[in-house]
Computed example of a mutant assay.
Amino acid sequence: MWLTIAVISTLFIGVSTILSKIGIKDADAYVTGAVTNSVLLLAFVGTALFTGKFDQISDMGMWTWISIAASGAVLSISWVFYFLGLKGGSVSVFLAIQSLTIVVSMVLCAVFIKEKITLFMIIGTVMIITGTLLMMDREELSALKNKKIWQSDQRWILFAAISAVLASVSYVIVKADKAPIDTNVTSTFRYIIVVVLLWIIFFSKKKQSSFKEIAPKCWLFILLGAAASGAGHVLVYKALFLGKAAVIMTIYRMGMVISIILSRIFLHEKLQKKGWFGFALLVAGVVLFAVGR
C-alpha cells in the first residue's frame, strides 16, 4: 500500500517541479516559496478535514509536538534554498543534486532509526554521487572547486545541496515519531510553522513589491505547480507514516526522471553525452539503492 502511495506522489512531484520552474523564471523565489507552501498547507488541512482526522489532536503527545516544531523549522529553511536553487540552475542538474537526499537520509536513518545499510545501498550511493557529477557541465564543476562558490553565479548548486540536506533531516525527524497520528493532521501543524516562517522571511527580505512584478501567466504556473506539489506531499507523508523512510525517499526522488524528460520538452534543456551517461548512472544508482532496501 505505502509503495503505491509513494509512486503516485512521485508522479505529482515530477510534474510540479517543471510547473514551478516555468513559473519561477520571471518571479521572485521567496514569493514562490511562500505561496507554494501556503497551498501545501491548504492541501493538508483539506485532506484532514475531509477524512475527519482532526479529532486525533487530543492523542498527540509531547514528542509529536516537538517533532512537528523541529521538522517544520528545518523544512522551512529547506524550502527557501529549494526555490533559490531551482530558480538559478537547470532542472536536470538541480534534481541530480536533490537526489543526494537519498544518501543523507540513509545515513541519518541508520544513525537515529537504526535502519540497516546494505552493500547495494553503498554501491548505489557511489553511483548516485558519480552520476550527479557527470551531469554537471564544466562551469558547474569548476564552481565546486571554487572556495567562493557562495559569491559566484553558480551558488545555486550550494543552495540545492543545503536544501537536500535539510529536507533529509526534516523527513527523518518525521519518521522518528512513532505516534499513530494521521499524517495530514501532523503535516497541517508542521506546515503552519513552515508557512509562518516563510512569510516572515519574505517580509524580512522586503519582497512585497515583487508581487506586482509577477505576470498572470507566471501566477498560473506557480499555482498549478503548488497544487501538484500539494498532492504529492500529502501522499509522500502518508507513505512515510506507513513505510520505510529510506525506500520512500528513493522512490520519491525518481520523480526526477519525469521532470528531466519534461524539461527537454518544455524548457528545451539539453545534456551532453557524459551528462546522459551520468543520468543513467544516477537512475541505476537510485534503483539499486531501492533494491538494497
Score class of each variant (00 low, 15 high):
Ala73Tyr: 06
Ala70Met: 13
Gly285Gln: 06
Leu166Glu: 06
Leu267Pro: 02
Gly88Leu: 09
Val174Ile: 09
Leu84Tyr: 15
Trp63Phe: 12
Thr130Lys: 01
Phe289His: 10
Glu140Arg: 14
Leu133Lys: 00
Lys244Cys: 04
Leu288Arg: 06
Ile68Asn: 00
Thr10Ser: 13
Val74Leu: 12
Leu223Tyr: 06
Ser209Gln: 11
Val91Arg: 01
Ile66His: 00
Ile102Gln: 03
Thr132Ser: 09
Val31Trp: 03
Ile192Ala: 09
Ala226Cys: 12
Asp177Tyr: 09
Asn37Val: 15
Arg190Trp: 00
Phe112Arg: 03
Lys207Phe: 08
Asp182Lys: 00
Gly285Lys: 03
Asp137Pro: 02
Ile13His: 12
Thr132Phe: 05
Ile200Ala: 14
Lys206Tyr: 08
Ala34Leu: 08
Ile57Gln: 01
Ala280His: 04
Leu141Cys: 09
Val185Gln: 03
Gly89Trp: 00
Val185His: 00
His268Ala: 12
Leu134Gln: 04
Gly72Thr: 03
Ala164Thr: 09
Gly14Lys: 02
Ile181Tyr: 00
Gly230Ile: 07
Thr10Trp: 01
Leu144Ala: 10
Ala29Trp: 11
Ala176Lys: 03
Ser187Cys: 09
Thr118His: 08
Ser210His: 10
Leu267Phe: 09
Ala284Gln: 07
Lys217His: 12
Lys87Asp: 12
Ser9Gln: 07
His268Thr: 11
Ile222Cys: 06
Trp150Leu: 14
Ile123Asp: 07
Ile8Pro: 01
Gly243Gln: 11
Leu224Met: 11
Thr36Phe: 07
Met135Asp: 07
Ala239Pro: 04
Gln154Val: 05
Asp26Cys: 04
Ile113Met: 14
Ala239Thr: 13
Ile122Lys: 06
Ala6Met: 03
Ile57Asn: 01
Gly23Leu: 14
Gly124Asp: 03
Leu281Glu: 06
Ile123Leu: 14
Tyr82Lys: 02
Asp182Asn: 13
Ser263Phe: 03
Ile117Met: 14
Ile251Thr: 07
Lys87Pro: 06
Ala164Lys: 01
Arg264Ile: 07
Phe277Thr: 11
Phe202Tyr: 15
Val107Asp: 13
Trp65Ser: 01
Ala245Lys: 03
Trp156Gly: 03
Lys175Thr: 05
Ala284Leu: 11
Met1Tyr: 11
Thr118Cys: 05
Gly225His: 10
Gly52Lys: 15
Gly275Thr: 07
Met62Gln: 05
Ser187Met: 14
Cys218His: 15
